[in-house]
Write a protein that binds this DNA or RNA. Structure first.
Lengths: 250, 250
DNA sequence: AATGGCAATTTTGAATGCAAAATGGTTCAT
DNA sequence: ATGAACCATTTTGCATTCAAAATTGCCATT
């Protein structure tokens, strides 16, 4: 299964930001790196484009999809809707065992919160949300959620976590678990949507100005940016919507 | 843009049921039919697989995704969640012009309802739902909705429309328009979810038992577009190799 | 020096070719 | 007769090749 491997590998690279938003996707170098020919690689690019990670420009190759503030907003809106739906469905369809499992995850996460261990907290937070989605027993929703949440995850490197936000998030998680245990669909749905909106606002406040205009030129091993030594651009473009670089999509 | 053409063409074929669920996707014949080589066709298959229309079996080619009752249920659940979200967002983001446009569509649809013209009614019904989603100004949601609703549309050939169901649907649409005009997000969201659930139940009642086990074989040029009247189960086995085709998905 | 045009190179998109796997049919042993 | 094993054919997956488009570099002209 070479094809799926290539898709998975590239998707991870895109989620992890190894290939920076706005940059070109260098077919040749990726072929060399993965040890495959262009055929399976191009197939993978088509798939990743349909998943929203990259954009295909006819006769001009692929570029990594940018993360604009608006785009993140959209993703959060959709993700919030999905989580709300997941909560509602989970209240109907989750088994007691699944709810117990989620409680276990929650308790472990709470311990990390008490210890103020963010690195331990994050994975469990994610695991809980994924477990809720799984508990819907709705594979269509699982797939779409995986896509949307992964696209959001691309932005995770810019989120700080102020103490009061963290406290609020933890309180919301208490309410989430509580509503799920009572199988209160309306309540769980509502809390999850609020939870996501808070996260969205927090991310928005953290700001995307920088990723809006990465002047990143070409490619993979960018030891030395060949193009135009962007080094000192940041202050200049702050207020401008900055379509300067990437918007060459005529 | 040859690649996109191939994807679009095949997707239409899949939505329209020209390639029946469960059947093999004959690469060679589609190449001949579309006048392209296998390379762009296979790229298209990968994309369609990621969109959920077909299933790729390693070293065994592609098969058209089946529509089981459970799968339809899942799609309707997700679609309902999306429409509810769309209604909510549309109340916030729609322009007055967009709402006016939706009202215009609604009024035209109402006329077809009065005339009991189902063929005229359906496209407008769909146009209204799409317009609501567009009015969210959320392109992520638009893309996902397009995918989910198209996958549901594959099942449309089995839905009858009893008079009282139609009356109920029309009443719901009145309420939808009303809530949207008042920008009552909660209400609109709720009505849309109910509206979809009703449609889902109606479709479920119509039944999918048949498509759960379509003995349909290879399927290249199906002149008879998969009418819901196979009616000839006995001879079906005779005409086709039958078993060697379908159930080899271990 | 800056701009415009032209040729060389690179990159993209699709067709073809080739090895491995699966499928189908036949033969042969039980 | 059943079915296990073998070989021929088809199909699949990927690599390679080829033509067209875009990008780049160079030079001439202003």
């Amino acid at each position: 299964m070479l094809h799926e491997d290539v898709v998975a590998h590239l998707r991870d690279k895109l989620i992890d930001g190894v290939l920076p938003p706005g940059s070109r996707v260098p077919e040749k170098e990726l072929c060399a790196e993965l040890g495959v020919s262009r055929t399976p690689l191009r197939e993978a690019l088509k798939v990743l484009a349909s998943e929203g990670y990259i954009v295909l420009l006819p006769n001009r190759g692929a570029r990594v999809a940018k993360m604009t503030a608006r785009n993140m907003e959209e993703l959060f809106e959709v993700c919030g809707g999905m989580e709300a739906l997941a909560g509602e469905l989970a209240c109907h369809y989750a088994t007691d065992a699944e709810i117990a499992e989620i409680k276990a995850l929650h308790d472990r996460m709470a311990e990390f919160y008490e210890a103020r261990n963010l690195a331990g907290y994050y994975p469990l937070n994610r695991a809980i949300h994924e477990a809720i989605v799984r508990a819907t027993h709705n594979s269509v929703l699982m797939n779409l959620y995986e896509n949307v949440s992964a696209r959001i995850r691309r932005a995770r490197f810019v989120v700080p976590m102020p103490p009061d936000h963290w406290r609020l998030a933890m309180a919301e998680h208490e309410a989430i678990l509580n509503a799920l245990q009572r199988r209160d669909a309306i309540m769980l749905s509502s809390i999850l949507k609020t939870h996501l909106r808070n996260k969205s606002e927090q991310v928005e406040r953290a700001g995307f100005a920088e990723s809006d205009e990465t002047p990143v030129p070409a490619a993979t091993a960018r030891k030395t940016p060949a193009g135009k030594t962007p080094a000192k651009k940041p202050p200049a473009k702050k207020n401008q919507p900055a379509k300067s670089e990437m918007e060459r999509i005529p």
